[in-house]
C-alpha cells in the first residue's frame, strides 16, 4: 500500500515527507510502548502510535520504518518533525483512535507480518 493511500484512508494530515508519499509499504504495527516495538516488531514499515515524543522517531529510525502515524488527534511538535525529516520518514496524524486506524488499514490490505506468514 502506498503511504498516500494510508493518509487518504485515515484522513490524515501530512507533517513531513511529502516526497515519500508514493513509497509502497507492506506491513504495519500499532503500539504505545516503544520498548515493545523494539522487542517484537519485525520488518514493519509503518508505526501507529498514540505516544508523541522524539523517541518515537528514534525507535522507528532504528527499526528502518518509513512512516509514523500519530493517532487520537495527537500532533507532533517541531523537534519530532525535524528528526523525522533527517531520518527520511513520513509523519502523519489522524483523529482516529488506534483500533479504528489499525482496522481501516488492515481491512484494506495492510496486514501485520504474523498474518503474512500463515
Amino acid at each position: 500500500m502506498k503511504i498516500s493511500k494510508i493518509a487518504e484512508l485515515l484522513s490524515a494530515e501530512v507533517y513531513t515527507g511529502r516526497e515519500l508519499l508514493e513509497t509502497s509499504v507492506y506491513s504495519a504495527c500499532g503500539a504505545d510502548m516503544m520498548s515493545d516495538v523494539l522487542a517484537f516488531v519485525k520488518d514493519q514499515s509503518v508505526l501507529l502510535t498514540g505516544l508523541v515524543n522524539p523517541q518515537v522517531v528514534r525507535t522507528a529510525e532504528m527499526m528502518d520504518m518509513r512512516c509514523i502515524v500519530f493517532v487520537r488527534g495527537k500532533k507532533p511538535d517541531q523537534t519530532i518533525i525535524d528528526l523525522a525529516k533527517q531520518a527520511n520518514m513520513v509523519i502523519l496524524a489522524t483523529g482516529l483512535r488506534m483500533y479504528c486506524a489499525c482496522g481501516l488499514l488492515y481491512s484494506n490490505g495492510l496486514v501485520g507480518t504474523e498474518v503474512k506468514k500463515q
Binding site: 510502548m33 516503544m34 520498548s35 515493545d36 523494539l38 522487542a39 505516544l51 515524543n53 523517541q55
Partner: peptide, 27 residues
Amino acid sequence: QEGFSTAPENVRALGFGAGMGLPNMKK
C-alpha cells in the same frame, strides 16, 4: 529477565521501561 524493570514511572510514560532493554540487546 524479560519484564524485570527498575525504571521510574515517568520513563514508562515516555514509552520505555518495560524490562525489555537488556534481553533485547542480547537478542
